[in-house]
Design a protein around this nucleic acid. Structure first.
Lengths: 156, 156
DNA sequence: TGAATACTTGACATAAACAGTAGGCTATTT
DNA sequence: AAATAGCCTACTGTTTATGTCAAGTATTCA
């Protein structure tokens, strides 16, 4: 359940690849495609969205390619995914683009809302900088802290 | 992004409805369907899965219906969703039923794995009992604790 | 200026997943 | 026996996901 589309996955991987070159040199689509094993045509769509959203810049012509528009540590994963897949919306009930017709009857409304907030919160704490530094391992500490807190809550 | 299928949503709502009657009386599919505004035929599929997984019991014949197999507080939402939609698997890369072909090259592998663990951890802390008691509001505290911890981590 | 290189856009194709329906069957109670 | 209620499986229409393709536009270098 709760699978991410390939657009989101490839997008993050492409951003990572671009970030690796940052700020030294622009990376061509072809390079990114080869390194991440994705078709050039498909990547074009993805990078186009990211560029229009202002996350990356492009330079045309020979020697051109893509560059990050900001520093890696200023680009949270949540933003990349948000551009490519829209906001987190576990159910249509909590989708900002739709809306709940039965909020008051909907017992689960709050549950989905909180789950969404949880996910967004998490993805906002991780940046491309973290990915580059390879310090995602320390995330486990975050989870551990969460579980402890929940346990406290339930034992009250 | 990350939308839950209707099966999962309806399933949780159905479980909630059954839990409301617990342990007094069995609820018929028809009653659940009416109260949660879902078709009887569709609900049958969902309740069938939940029954085979041992989350609910059924009683046939007149006066029959569905009952919880355990106490509401012993039934985490994660389990309900797991039965109906399989395990959390943000990408095929971290799907226990598939597997990652390129773990060592896959920078994002750990990220998706942690996100999945985060979600499962959260859904495991919420039970039908919590839903019944309407104390989902206190979830916010959990999130706040999470964010604080993350902040600490990043400022180190 | 012309060739090479690279990005841009929109239409289209295929396949998988989702959401729900339909119909017949079995068990239990009265 | 009749009524009630759950059980099971196959089928189907729709939507979404995942790409591909083709033609066009912009930039740079020689």
């Amino acid at each position: 359940m709760l699978r991410l589309s390939t657009k989101g996955q490839y997008g993050v991987r492409a951003m990572f690849e671009i970030a690796r070159g940052y700020p030294d040199r622009p990376l061509t689509i072809k390079e990114i495609a080869e390194r991440q094993d994705v078709s050039v045509a498909y990547l074009e769509q993805i990078l186009g969205k990211l560029r229009r959203a202002g996350l990356i810049r492009s330079i045309r012509g020979p020697g051109g390619g893509y560059l990050l528009a900001r520093e890696p540590r200023e680009i949270p994963i949540a933003e990349v995914l948000g551009v490519l897949e829209g906001p987190v919306a576990i159910t249509s009930c909590v989708d900002p683009r739709e809306g709940c017709v039965r909020v008051e009857h909907c017992v689960t409304h709050l549950l989905w809302k909180e789950l969404g907030a949880q996910i967004e919160g998490f993805l906002n704490t991780i940046t491309l900088g973290n990915l580059l530094a390879g310090d995602v391992g320390s995330l486990q500490q975050v989870r551990t802290a969460l579980e402890k807190t929940s346990k406290d809550r339930n034992s009250r």
